[in-house]
């Protein structure tokens, strides 16, 4: 089966990564930021799978599964933090969390 060459997958992955990065840098709601981080992780996964296909070995896919597991753990922790914020009636706005200002 042919189809697009691997470089198209790489470009797509880059576009997804950029979109996720823009979301992290430009949105204030922590939930949206977390979702954008997910997008970035998925773009990395896509790249790994594509490279695995290029080289013919499963290592990339193994790595991708590990990434998925880690992403899940990170989402657990992140959502826990957001729930804690919400319970304390802190505004869901990362710009309000400025105590570490220099």
């Amino acid at each position: 089966m042919h189809g697009p060459d691997i470089q198209w997958y790489v470009v797509l992955s880059a576009l997804l990564f950029t979109t996720g990065a823009l979301g992290v840098m430009l949105r204030r709601n922590p939930l949206i930021i977390l979702l954008s981080v997910e997008i970035m992780l998925n773009s990395a996964n896509l790249l790994l799978i594509a490279m695995s296909r290029l080289h013919g070995g499963e290592d990339g896919q193994i790595f991708a599964i590990s990434v998925m597991a880690v992403a899940a753990s990170e989402v657990v922790v992140g959502l826990g933090l957001i729930v804690a914020m919400g319970r304390r009636n802190v505004d869901l706005d990362v710009d309000k969390l400025r105590t570490l200002r220099g």
């Binding site: 990065a21 992290v24 840098m25 990362v94």
Partner: peptide
């Protein structure tokens, strides 16, 4: 330079990028 230390997560993310 202290302008860069504004305490905003997003600015630090921008710095990373």
């Amino acid at each position: 330079l202290s302008v860069a230390q504004n305490g905003l997560v997003r600015s630090y993310a921008l710095a990373l990028a």
